[in-house]
């Protein structure tokens, strides 16, 4: 169990690092959202699953699962709102230039 936890935590950390590396490397905003998505999805999932394997307390497991559930529900919504706001802003600027 401890070894599985090690692997999950290290993989999760690695995906978080790759995601932020992408956030620095990608050239424009709309591509950077994809890189941030890695941290929000697989990075968070793997680290929280890794923590779940490290405890026997049922209440803590439930809390970690609830964190995971809330993140999976709110993360995409926030990203969608952000992307939509950026798109509307770009359209505004285009119409102002014309």
């Amino acid at each position: 169990m401890i070894i599985i936890g090690w692997i999950l935590l290290l993989l999760g950390s690695a995906f978080c690092l790759i995601g932020t590396l992408g956030l620095m490397r990608f050239p424009d905003f709309f591509s950077r959202v994809h890189a941030a998505g890695i941290v929000d999805s697989l990075g968070a999932i793997l680290i929280l699953l890794g923590l779940i394997t490290q405890t026997q307390d049922v209440l803590i497991i439930i809390k970690l699962l609830l964190i995971l559930l809330f993140m999976m529900l709110t993360g995409p919504t926030a990203v969608h709102a952000l992307a939509r706001a950026a798109l509307l802003d770009a359209k505004d600027k285009n119409s102002n230039n014309k």
Binding site: C16, T20, L23, F29, A36, V39, L51, Q54, L82, A85
Partner: peptide, 26 residues
């Protein structure tokens, strides 16, 4: 460069903070 890049970074920063708090608890 744009304000949306900053908000995106801070949103992801919040995700990382949640993970950090959970890890720190362990």
């Amino acid at each position: 460069p744009t304000v949306f890049d900053r908000i995106l970074a801070i949103n992801t920063f919040g995700t990382a903070t949640v993970l950090l708090i959970a890890l720190f608890g362990f």
